[in-house]
Amino acid sequence: MRIETAGARAFPWTPKRGARRRQASVLAIFAAFAIFVPFASAQRGGQPRPAASARVVAPYDFTGYWVSVVTEDWRWRMMTPAKGDYASVPLNRAAERMADAWDPAKDEAAGEECRSYGAPAIMRVPGRLHITWQDDSTLRVDADAGTQTRILNFGAAPPQQTTSWQGRSVALWEPAGGGRRGAAPTLAGSLKVVTTGLRAGYLRKNGVPYSANTVLTEYFQGTHEDNGDAWLIVTTVVQDPEYLTGRFFTSSHFKKLHDASGWNPTRCSAR
C-alpha cells in the first residue's frame, strides 16, 4: 500500500517559480541523457538495433529485500532525537529555529506524520526495502517504515502537479566514460537518481527541516562479498537552498535478505 496520496494536498511551501524552472531544467537535461545512453549503447559497432530497456541493460540486480544495518547515526535513527539535537547537519539559522520549534503533536493534528519519511530521509529510517521492476523502465522501491513507495523512472518522469513525500525521480545507469574514438560508454554499475517535486519534510524525526526547493541526488551501488553477503550502498546528497548551508551527505547501507521475512509495513509516526 502506498500513501503517496497524502502528498496530493496543496502545501504552503511550494517552490518559487524560478526554483521550479531550475528544477525542470535539471530534470530535462538528466532525462535526455538517461534516454540517450541506452540509445548510444545500441549504436555501438554501427549496428542499429532497438534501444535496450533499463531493465535489460541493468549492470546490477537491485531487486529483492534489503534490511538497513544501523552502524552509524544510531542515536538519531534508532531513537527519536531530542528537540534541538541537529548535530552533523549543516543547517542555517532559519532551519535551526524551525527545528527548535518542532512540535510532533502539531504534525499529528495536521495529518503530517510522514514528514520524516520523505525521499531525502527515508534511506536513513531503519527498516526494510523491497525493490522490484514495475515495468522495463521503472524501478519501484517500497519501504516498510512508514509504508512509503518510491518510483524511479528511467527516462522522463511523468508530470506531477503537486509535491509529494517521495517526489518525482529520474533514474540513470551511470556511464563509465566515453571511450576512445567516440565509442559509446559502457555502464559503470551504479544507479543515479535525481528527485525533485518534494513536499517539505524533515531530514530527521525531530523536525530538522528540508524545503520543497530541495534537489535530492542519490547513487545506488551494489556489492557482492566473498562470504556471500551482498550490500546496497546509497549515497545521498541533499541540496536545499532554503535550509542548508551546503550539500548534506549521508550514505546508508542495506544487507540483502533471502526472503520477505521481517517485512513489517508500519504507519508513519511523528514521534
Binding site: 534490511v67 538497513s68 544495518v69 544501523v70 552502524t71 542515536r75 534508532m78 531513537m79 527519536t80 532525537p81 531530542a82 528537540k83 539535537d85 531503519p126 527498516g127 526494510r128 517504515a145 525531530n206 521481517g262 514521534r271
Partner: peptide
C-alpha cells in the same frame, strides 16, 4: 544494528 531492536527501546525521545 537491526531495525527490530527499536521494539526494545523506549518510545520517548533521547
Amino acid at each position: 544494528m537491526y531495525p527490530e531492536y527499536r521494539a526494545k527501546l523506549p518510545g520517548t525521545p533521547s
